[in-house]
Amino acid sequence: MQLKPIIFNIFMKPFEQKALHERRSNLISKVNGNVLELGAGTGINFNYYRNEKISKLTIMDLEFNNIIKNHSFNKSMNINYVEGNAENIPFPDNTFDSVVSTLIYCSIDNPELALSEVFRVLKPGGRMYFIEHVLPKKGHYRKLLNRLNGVWKMIGKCNVNRETLKLIQKTNFKVVDFERFGKACFIFIKGIGIKE
Score class of each variant (00 low, 15 high):
126 G>W: 14
93 D>I: 15
102 T>H: 06
120 R>L: 09
121 V>E: 05
101 S>P: 05
148 L>H: 04
84 G>V: 10
107 S>C: 15
124 P>C: 02
146 N>V: 11
89 I>K: 03
138 K>M: 09
91 F>V: 06
122 L>N: 04
108 I>R: 00
86 A>P: 10
133 H>Y: 09
146 N>M: 12
100 V>T: 13
112 E>H: 00
93 D>P: 11
133 H>P: 06
128 M>P: 01
139 G>C: 00
138 K>D: 14
102 T>G: 12
82 V>G: 03
88 N>Y: 07
132 E>H: 01
107 S>H: 11
148 L>M: 15
146 N>C: 11
89 I>C: 05
147 R>P: 00
104 I>C: 14
82 V>E: 04
85 N>A: 14
95 T>S: 15
132 E>I: 00
137 K>V: 07
125 G>C: 08
145 L>N: 06
102 T>R: 06
139 G>W: 01
142 R>M: 10
114 A>D: 04
108 I>F: 03
148 L>T: 10
136 P>Q: 11
122 L>F: 07
103 L>H: 08
123 K>E: 13
129 Y>L: 01
91 F>Q: 13
99 V>Q: 14
143 K>C: 02
118 V>F: 06
82 V>P: 00
83 E>S: 12
118 V>E: 11
88 N>C: 11
103 L>F: 15
107 S>V: 07
96 F>H: 08
126 G>D: 14
109 D>W: 06
91 F>P: 05
146 N>G: 01
89 I>E: 05
92 P>A: 14
119 F>C: 05
110 N>Q: 11
103 L>C: 10
129 Y>N: 05
109 D>S: 14
115 L>S: 08
89 I>V: 08
137 K>W: 00
126 G>P: 13
148 L>E: 03
144 L>Y: 11
112 E>N: 08
108 I>Q: 00
138 K>A: 12
115 L>D: 07
117 E>Q: 13
118 V>W: 07
111 P>M: 06
137 K>N: 05
141 Y>F: 15
122 L>K: 03
110 N>I: 08
85 N>G: 11
88 N>V: 01
83 E>H: 00
142 R>L: 03
131 I>S: 08
100 V>A: 06
91 F>T: 09
132 E>W: 00
132 E>R: 01
130 F>L: 09
116 S>Y: 03
100 V>I: 13
133 H>K: 12
92 P>D: 15
85 N>W: 12
123 K>V: 10
140 H>S: 06
113 L>E: 09
134 V>E: 11
143 K>D: 02
85 N>R: 13
131 I>T: 07
124 P>I: 04
113 L>A: 07
105 Y>I: 02
93 D>H: 15
119 F>E: 09
131 I>N: 09
139 G>A: 04
86 A>H: 04
108 I>G: 02
114 A>L: 02
121 V>Q: 04
103 L>W: 05
91 F>S: 07
143 K>A: 09
106 C>D: 04
134 V>F: 07
122 L>A: 08
115 L>T: 05
105 Y>C: 15
137 K>S: 10
140 H>F: 07
145 L>V: 08
130 F>I: 00
114 A>P: 03
85 N>T: 13
130 F>Q: 02
127 R>G: 00
116 S>A: 12
126 G>Q: 13
96 F>E: 10
117 E>C: 01
147 R>D: 00
